[in-house]
């Protein structure tokens, strides 16, 4: 090679950059799911919420010219879908996992239906913080472009951990998730707590969707999410229901996904299909190592039907 480029050094840089670019949707959805599951309910429908969020964010940004309005709209749509999930699950004999899957289909279908006219137009996108402006290297500058939403997500992860551990609200949420009977005995309406938690979780997942369509890859089309929403729900268990660990898990997952293209760009391309499943193998391996048959996972809300 000519020598002026980064070469192999570019691989770690691309992986870091990739982690910062790819992980935010995972982060937002897993934070949303974390909140929901802490209250004792599983919402598997966040993939649908993510895609609905992506579509509505793109549409609103295109029509109004303001990407931030788009983000709000995405959150609003997510809030509604979350509230619908919570409301339906509140009815006796209605299974939260099943409703989640149904809402996923509904969300994806509706987004594809309403999103048809949005595939072509170009909408205004979200801006980024240029943390790399001190450097003269354009790859470094690009890697350190951090979207405002992602910055919010990082703050949110720490704030949520604080909220869950140290505030009255967090305690209430955890009581509802650990033992609905105790919560009721204390005079709290468990259904309402779960409604709020699921709706807020939906809001976050919707915002995660807006990142997909308005920042990275920054476009609306039907292949936009390749199951990021589903995977993010899985990451919550991986992260043991801890918001900050959700952040690390999202970053890990994002960087593992960026490894394949980065290696190929310097000419290493053997087994590229296997490289692309590396994040999944890694997640499975870590889960196998850290789980145990003899105790439930630390941090798992006792009321979760899915993890009984």
């Amino acid at each position: 090679m000519e020598g002026e480029a980064l070469g192999l050094l570019g691989v770690p840089l691309a992986v870091i950059g990739g982690a910062l670019r790819v992980s935010p949707p995972y982060l937002f959805v897993s934070l949303g799911e974390c909140l929901t599951e802490k209250s004792g309910r599983v919402n598997l429908g966040l993939e649908g919420t993510l895609i609905m969020g992506a579509m509505s964010a793109y549409g609103v940004s295109y029509l109004s010219g303001s990407p931030w309005l788009g983000v709000l709209a995405a959150g609003g749509v997510g809030l509604l879908l979350g509230a619908l999930h919570a409301y339906l699950c509140q009815q006796p004999r209605v299974n939260d996992i099943a409703i989640g899957i149904a809402l996923m289909i509904f969300g994806v279908g509706l987004a594809f239906f309403l999103g048809k006219p949005l595939i072509q137009p170009t909408a205004p996108r979200l801006p980024a913080f240029e943390f790399g402006n001190w450097s003269s290297s354009s790859p470094l500058r690009a890697a350190l472009q951090i979207n405002v939403l992602f910055a919010i997500g990082i703050v949110l992860a720490f704030a949520m951990r604080y909220m869950l551990q140290r505030t009255r609200w967090g305690l209430l949420l955890r009581v509802a998730g650990e033992s609905s009977d105790s919560a009721r005995a204390m005079g709290y309406d468990v259904a309402r707590i779960r409604l709020y938690a699921t709706a807020c979780g939906g809001f976050l997942a919707g915002v995660g969707g807006s990142f997909l369509s308005l920042y990275y890859p920054g476009s609306w089309n039907e292949g936009l999410s390749s199951g990021q929403g589903l995977m993010a729900v899985a990451l919550v268990i991986f992260a043991r229901w801890d918001p900050v660990r959700c952040l690390w898990a999202s970053l890990l997952f994002g960087s593992a996904g960026a490894l394949g293209p980065a290696l190929q760009s310097v000419g290493i391309s053997g087994g590229y299909h296997l490289l692309s499943v590396a994040p999944y193998v890694l997640t499975l391996a870590i889960m196998m190592m850290t789980s145990s048959a003899h105790r439930t996972l630390l941090g798992q809300p006792a009321e979760l039907g899915a993890a009984k």
Binding site: G10, R21, P139, A262
Partner: peptide
């Protein structure tokens, strides 16, 4: 998008 960014990073 990731591939495009990786390539751009490589000059």
């Amino acid at each position: 998008a990731e591939a495009a960014n990786s390539l751009a990073d490589q000059g």
